[in-house]
């Protein structure tokens, strides 16, 4: 077992945890955290392959992609957080109500 394989297997587990969290968590904040965990899994997957394909240095493309991806994910998470806070401010709801 190579080192990168530990991480790529972990990445799949993290992705699944995040996915489950998005579907099953109730509180807005937890759903948002779950999406970031999903993202963490995906990025780990990318970087583990970069390590595998290393020559004199690790494959730089996945690194660059992950940096881009992290920033994009953070921007959306910040937006989601703003939405969640605003909803709480206006209605006092902390999770999705099912009647709508």
């Amino acid at each position: 077992m190579e080192i990168y394989q530990i991480y790529s297997l972990t990445s799949a587990i993290l992705f699944v945890i995040g996915l489950g969290g998005v579907f099953a968590a109730r509180h807005f904040i937890k759903k948002i955290i779950a999406t970031i965990i999903m993202g963490g899994g995906v990025f780990l997957c990318f970087v583990s392959f970069a390590q595998r394909d290393a020559l004199t240095f690790a494959d730089p493309v996945p690194h660059a992609l992950v940096i881009t991806g992290i920033v994009v994910a953070v921007a959306s998470a910040a937006f989601a957080l703003a939405l969640a806070r605003r909803i709480y401010q206006l209605t006092g709801e902390e999770s999705f109500t099912n009647d709508k």
Binding site: L83, R86, T97
Partner: peptide
């Protein structure tokens, strides 16, 4: 709209 928007975003 906000609630629908959060659902959409997630």
């Amino acid at each position: 709209a906000l609630s629908a928007g959060l659902r959409y975003l997630l």
